[in-house]
């Protein structure tokens, strides 16, 4: 009896599981019209304007942009460059080609988190003055960005150049680059030492394989 029961289960158990999985696929395609991917998409933003009303005591300045950036956005920005919490790069252009000045700043009116840069803010008062033309070169996270739902996005995703080519509605900036060229290891890593230990551990395992199996004691199963 045990043999019969086992045989029946082994032959038919795939069916209910397959039905559940078919439902999952259907849910993946039909159940969600839009896949919200928070923090996945980021848009880079450059804002160029003229500096005025620099107050080095309170570390604020006013930036008058040359043109309206987006509909509804102000053309005059108050910049607080005293905070290190939200970093926003400012690039000074003009007097000395090839040299760049970057400072940390909070920009009133812009919400969200920005890329973090580490700058030297020394000698700021000597290099930045009213009338300078500077450019914000930060990257703004578009936390409300949504991907248009399709089988492609439910199943996989094209890599960055392909997405760019397809003119997807959201610009893939940092994340997709990380995703897509992770194959090269991406240089430095926060867990570098951990991976080094992992690699050594792998070598130990491989060493065990070589010594245990290749040299004499190998066997089937």
């Amino acid at each position: 009896m045990a043999a019969n029961r086992g045989s029946f289960i082994s032959r038919w158990i795939f069916l209910p599981i397959a039905l559940v999985l078919v439902f999952m696929i259907a849910w993946g395609i039909i159940g969600k019209k839009l896949v919200v991917v928070p923090e996945l998409t980021q848009g880079s933003k450059n804002i160029t304007g003229v500096v005025s009303d620099i107050d080095f005591d309170n570390k604020t300045l006013k930036l008058d942009v040359n043109e309206e950036i987006e509909e509804g956005q102000p053309t005059s920005w108050t910049v607080d460059f005293s905070s290190a919490k939200k970093a926003f790069a400012i690039k000074k252009i003009g007097e000395e080609p090839g040299t760049e000045l970057v400072i940390r700043a909070d920009v009133a009116g812009l919400e969200g988190e920005y890329e973090r840069y580490d700058f030297d803010v020394e000698n700021l008062s000597q290099t930045l003055k009213d009338g300078d033309v500077i450019t914000f070169i930060g990257s703004k996270k578009m936390s409300t960005a949504e991907f248009k739902a399709s089988i492609m996005h439910l199943g996989g995703i094209f890599n960055a150049p392909e997405l760019h080519e397809r003119q997807e509605p959201a610009e893939i900036y940092k994340t997709a680059v990380i995703l897509c060229i992770a194959c090269v290891g991406l240089g430095e890593s926060n867990l570098f030492w951990f991976w080094l230990i992992m690699a050594l551990l792998l070598l130990v395992i491989l060493g065990w394989v070589v010594t245990r199996i290749v040299i004499g004691k190998g066997g089937v199963a």
Binding site: A18, L21, G28, I29, G155
Partner: peptide, 21 residues
């Protein structure tokens, strides 16, 4: 990718699982 984005890829898991069964 989807885990990192805080979502569950029903389609991928269903597709792989269906092939598997």
């Amino acid at each position: 990718h989807f885990t990192g984005a805080g979502t569950f890829s029903f389609f991928t898991v269903g597709f792989l699982g269906l092939l598997g069964v």
